[in-house]
Amino acid sequence: MENGKKRMAVLVGCNYPNTKYELHGCINDVVSMQKDLVDRFGFDPKSIELLVDDGSGSKALPTGVNIKMALKKIIDGAKAGDVLFFHYSGHGTLLPSKHHLKQQEEAIVPCDFNLITDVDFRQLVNGLPKGASFTILSDSCHSGGLIDKEKEQIGPNSLTPTTKHAHNLDLNISQPKPKKIQVESITDHLASLTNMVGSEIGTHLTTLFGDGASLMFRLPELDLDEQFGPHRPDSGILLSGCQTNETSADMPPVGSNGKAHGAFSYAVQSVFKAQQDPISNKDVVMLAREVLEKEGVEGQHPCLYCSDENANAHFLMWDAAQSNK
């Protein structure tokens, strides 16, 4: 910690064990990131909160309320110069938009299906004190644009996708699984809990979770427009595993010592291993794209959303972390 500045993180891995939505590499992703945060980026282990859904290594399950409480805690405790980080590995989804500026809204899927939407992440970013930074790395489907109204730096409108390649995988192992749950499946699951057949997803969520449901479903559209009006430069930084219309892959283990992992999380950590010097947010995303292409991961193009200044800033203020050692 330099001059009293704090480095705080929330790491969430959802494998959805014993369900039809089960994934296998998400907890591995955030456990590996936890080590990188301590060894390379100068985080105190006590400043990292890990939420996983396998019953081990976590004080609480990664429910929608628990994730938002953990994020609000680090934001409320932040001051100028502090570095905040959220790594999510799990399912994502797209929702019909209540906001007239977009056709669909992005969301992550906590273990209890209490969705956290792009509107919620916008509210969290808006709560940052001036001079603090909040980096989100989301290894989930449809994660592009997960901070509502954040400026696109690398994405479908700013960069032509690289050539697609077929998966180069051993035919004797299972194939990659997209980290995606259709909104219709989520609605059906919630309806089985509320017994409210034919209701919209927001009705199910507010019935089940009350004030713990996403702000998107609790505020009228006009209030959302007023609260999250015209974009202004801020310190939110989103590194997404894919574009809004794409899926992110949960990869099976390869080789006898391999572990299941998220393709994007693996790519980012591969970049860290190859780059010993500080590296910008923009370069992390561009190099992660190269790793995915070399690994033969098809149709997944990581994106970057942040201010112009933060696009060229070092990932997690890497230079400051090194100076603390």
Results as ranks from 00 to 15, higher is better:
residue 7 R to L: 02
residue 15 N to H: 06
residue 16 Y to W: 11
residue 20 K to S: 13
residue 23 L to S: 05
residue 23 L to H: 05
residue 28 N to R: 10
residue 33 M to V: 12
residue 36 D to M: 08
residue 41 F to Y: 11
residue 45 P to N: 11
residue 46 K to Y: 11
residue 48 I to K: 05
residue 49 E to R: 02
residue 52 V to E: 04
residue 55 G to C: 10
residue 55 G to A: 11
residue 56 S to K: 15
residue 56 S to E: 14
residue 58 S to V: 09
residue 59 K to D: 13
residue 62 P to L: 06
residue 65 V to E: 10
residue 65 V to R: 09
residue 66 N to C: 08
residue 83 V to C: 12
residue 90 G to N: 03
residue 91 H to F: 09
residue 105 E to Q: 15
residue 105 E to N: 15
residue 105 E to S: 13
residue 105 E to I: 09
residue 112 D to P: 06
residue 113 F to V: 05
residue 118 D to W: 02
residue 130 K to E: 12
residue 133 S to R: 01
residue 143 S to F: 00
residue 148 D to G: 04
residue 155 G to R: 01
residue 156 P to L: 07
residue 160 T to H: 14
residue 160 T to F: 14
residue 165 H to T: 06
residue 166 A to K: 12
residue 167 H to M: 12
residue 167 H to A: 12
residue 176 P to C: 10
residue 176 P to E: 06
residue 179 K to R: 14
residue 179 K to N: 04
residue 185 S to M: 13
residue 206 T to A: 04
residue 216 M to G: 00
residue 216 M to Q: 04
residue 219 L to A: 07
residue 220 P to V: 07
residue 223 D to H: 11
residue 225 D to C: 11
residue 229 G to S: 15
residue 230 P to T: 02
residue 233 P to F: 03
residue 236 G to L: 01
residue 243 Q to S: 04
residue 243 Q to H: 04
residue 248 S to E: 08
residue 264 F to Y: 14
residue 266 Y to S: 05
residue 270 S to C: 09
residue 274 A to V: 10
residue 288 A to T: 10
residue 292 L to K: 03
residue 294 K to Y: 11
residue 297 V to Y: 02
residue 298 E to S: 14
residue 299 G to M: 00
residue 300 Q to W: 05
residue 311 A to N: 04
residue 319 D to P: 01
residue 323 S to L: 13
